[in-house]
């Protein structure tokens, strides 16, 4: 319910302000080949434990973040701006 997500620009905010996209993966080069692209678009690891995801602070600063979430406990340990050198730790 009321879990918080830390934003490096705004501080901790309720998850309702955010939109999740999914695994934080690097986009392959245009000529990386079908296998790499299939992997990027469709195939996901489903690790138990630490996982990095893209979240968008939609009702806040509108920055895209990489959020570290534990898939087993749902605990969020921290986040960083997807490109700016700023990060935040969970409360």
């Amino acid at each position: 319910m009321a879990s918080l997500i830390p934003c490096p620009h705004c501080g901790s905010r309720p998850k309702e302000e955010f939109t999740v996209k999914g695994a934080a993966l690097a986009r392959p080069a245009p000529d990386a080949g079908t296998a790499a692209w299939i992997d990027y678009v469709y195939l996901r690891d489903n690790p138990r434990g630490a996982y990095e995801e893209y979240w968008h602070h939609t009702s806040g600063c509108r920055r895209w973040l990489v959020v570290s979430r534990n898939t087993a406990t749902h605990e969020i340990s921290g986040s960083r701006d997807v490109v700016l050198k700023l990060s935040a730790e969970a409360l």
């Binding site: 319910m1 009321a2 879990s3 918080l4 901790s12 749902h74 605990e75 969020i76 969970a90 409360l91």
Partner: peptide
């Protein structure tokens, strides 16, 4: 009624 992530209590 509940203790949630981020030390949020409902």
């Amino acid at each position: 009624f509940g203790w949630y992530d981020g030390n949020v209590v409902g």
